[in-house]
Amino acid sequence: MKTPLFFLLAIFMGITACNNDRANSATKTVNNIPVENNGVHIDYTDTGKGDTTLLFVHGWCINKTYWDNQVDCFNKNYRVVTIDLPGFGKSGKNRRDFNTTIYATDVNAIINQLHLNNVVLIGHSMSGDIILQAAVTNAAKVIGIVGIDNFKSVGVQMTNEKQAEKEYAEAMAAMKKDFKSVAIPYFNDQLFYKTTSAAVRQRIINDVKHADTIVAVKAMVWDKFNEADKLITYGKKLYMLNSDYDPTDVSGLKTKHLPYDLTYIHATGHFPMVEKPNEFNKLLEGIIKRI
């Protein structure tokens, strides 16, 4: 039986292969233009050139370096931007709230202050809801969104919402009391696949151990964000690149007649961009071409 914390995160949540030789990558530009959102510093990398910008947003308790392989792959044909969400990585954390709604304003701060156009937003895990909200409020500049291992049950009715809320509250209380004892077993038990390498596991667990626990808990607050309603407002196709260790239920998308494009990557856990980067990049390239 899946733990309450699994439910918590589940709520949020003609191709040419890339040459991954880092020596051939475009020069990275890091913070040439300072970006802030209401006084909070947002750290980012800005790489490559092109008419289309790929803006990558990381998931819970990790940071922008998880996209390094994608930066090296795609910056030959696109402008590629990665960001650290405030409270994680090298971004500031001098604010009270850390939730998907305010994180969406951080994404738009990057888009607007760097004067990005024709933006494809690519968000992992909890950042699915972040990029969706950013796209709705910045429709003139965003041409597509791609969810990475998220949007797994859009529009699907909960069988027992009160029980789900109870389990959620219990998980949040347990994390507030002892973050590591709850979060680390959850990652080990639920988010890794049998083929996930020891190096990838160690990297992720290390980042979880060193996360700001106050920020991490606040970032998981359940705001009952309605993905289906927001997708109706968005009015464009939802693209997903999901691991099949936990299948995606598209019945809600079909019932609500929401357009979607689902691509599966096989035999990875919740972090396909670092578990199988070459296969992931090929599949993502196909999605970008379709957008």
Rank of each mutant, 00 (worst) to 15 (best):
T101H: 11
A219Q: 03
T196I: 02
A135P: 05
L8Y: 05
I143R: 11
N94W: 07
K289P: 04
Y260T: 10
I287S: 07
A199L: 06
T213V: 06
F74K: 09
L283T: 01
I265A: 02
K152V: 03
V136S: 05
H41W: 14
A198C: 09
I33T: 15
N20R: 13
D244H: 04
N31C: 11
T248P: 02
N63C: 09
D72E: 15
L54N: 01
H257L: 10
G59K: 03
T105I: 06
E167Y: 10
H41F: 14
L191P: 00
A216W: 02
V182M: 07
S243T: 08
C61H: 06
W222A: 15
Q133N: 13
L284W: 00
R96T: 13
H115S: 08
L54T: 00
V81G: 00
F88H: 12
A134G: 01
A10P: 03
F12N: 10
C18H: 01
Q190P: 01
D244W: 00
T159P: 07
I291F: 02
I214Y: 07
L8V: 11
A228M: 15
P4L: 04
I205W: 04
V107A: 02
D207E: 15
G252T: 08
N278V: 15
Y66N: 13
I11F: 14
E36K: 11
T29S: 14
G147N: 03
A23C: 11
K218T: 06
G147R: 00
I62H: 01
G123A: 02
I265D: 01
T101A: 14
P185E: 08
D229A: 15
A135M: 03
R95T: 04
K93I: 03
D84L: 06
K194G: 09
G128M: 09
K218C: 10
N112M: 01
I131Q: 04
T268A: 03
E227Y: 11
V136G: 05
T52R: 08
K141E: 08
D149S: 05
F192D: 07
G87P: 02
L262S: 05
T233N: 04
S181D: 09
M126E: 10
R79V: 01
R96A: 13
F98E: 08
E275D: 08
I62A: 03
D244T: 07
I111N: 00
T195D: 15
H270P: 01
L241F: 01
V221T: 14
K49W: 09
E161W: 11
Y78I: 12
V208H: 02
S91K: 05
L284G: 05
L5F: 04
G147L: 00
A267F: 04
N24T: 08
I110K: 10
E275V: 00
A219S: 14
V30K: 14
K76Y: 00
